[in-house]
Design a binder for these strands. Structure first.
Lengths: 187, 187
DNA sequence: TTGTTATTAGCACTTGGTACTAACATCAGT
DNA sequence: ACTGATGTTAGTACCAAGTGCTAATAACAA
């Protein structure tokens, strides 16, 4: 045995999770065992055959097509909202959001969270950012949990504008602040 | 013939686009023709077999998983740059960048392009956005090609600040403008 | 030595096809 | 009515990537 059965099965699981498009034959070559052994392994691990795996991936896309887009509309997770008044969202900064060089979050992610919260708080189908004045007060790092609060401070129904103040904090400290001028269709 | 060949093939295309998981046999039943006819139809229409269709759907998910997460790396393609002076980038707005509801590009994508260009133009390892004053002049839609120009307008070596003006245009018309205040380590 | 577990081999069968050949059916034009 | 083009159906051999099953062999431990 090149490896123990357990080891092989562990690696097998990982390999298939990583790349569901791999055939039993490819796996057999990779692990230097027979195709039959791979099949037995899949049985024991209750891993479906290639075609089923691919179908699963594909059908999940089809489900997600309806679900993931609306979720995507907001950067960060909204945890509280009172339309036309205030809203609160959380955004966990991960490795993929920071500059590799210095580990500091890229500005546009903080902006994205703030901006989408500003859009979300407005009780209207159409809300667009017209103007924004923003300040990056302190650098944010991977692992930080950014809590962002948007507050509607002014509403001009004639001009169809709404002014929103947004403040983002990490551990109570302000890291980002901005004033957003939003346009809306319904006054 | 229940329908003409053309009609059937038209419906066939639509059916498969709508539900790529349908087999030739199901299609044959649905259109009251033989499986062979369906196969010939697929040939003429260059529609791949079920398994290939499913694989396509599945692999697109896998591509997207890599593509959709990086709202991070370089937003837009930098086509010209003179460090500490000016830079130019192009960003093609696609379906995934706009609000489903109204087809207008979400503000943070335009901001992201402008912001990363501002970061890129600075000849320094560490460049951070401190403050930004931005205006979304006109809505941008899917299919638009946004050309963004960043120009360094002021540099304070003592305060380690650099002021950059950014203007984004679509077909020569300004759609976004901003002033970015950047911090840098090397004066 | 015997028993257990692990591995390999081989065969028949399945799905959803491809590739190819051949037989018909239908209708249009002359 | 005959010919030809087009459309449809049938049938065969073959393929990939399996399942399900039986049987042989290897490795090791008690």
């Amino acid at each position: 045995m090149r490896r123990t059965k357990k080891e092989r099965q562990q690696l097998l699981s990982e390999t298939i999770v990583e790349n569901p498009f791999v055939t039993d034959e490819q796996l057999a070559t990779q692990f230097q065992v027979s195709v039959q052994t791979i099949r037995l392994d899949r049985m024991e691990l209750a891993i479906p055959e290639l075609r089923e795996r691919i179908k699963d991936v594909a059908s999940k896309t089809y489900e997600n097509e309806v679900k993931s887009l609306p979720i995507d509309e907001v950067i960060g997770e909204i945890i509280d909202i009172e339309l036309d008044q205030r809203a609160l969202s959380i955004f966990d900064v991960k490795e993929e959001h920071v500059f590799q060089r210095n580990g500091i979050a890229r500005g546009h992610h903080l902006f994205a969270q703030a901006n989408s919260l500003a859009v979300a708080v407005i009780n209207d189908e159409l809300a667009l950012t017209v103007h924004a004045n923003i300040t990056f007060v302190q650098p944010v790092h991977a692992g930080d949990r950014v809590i962002t609060k948007a507050t509607v401070v002014e509403r001009d129904e004639v001009k169809q504008r709404t002014k929103i103040e947004v403040v983002s904090t990490v551990n109570g400290e302000t890291v980002f602040a901005g004033e957003f001028d939003m346009y809306r269709t319904k006054g």
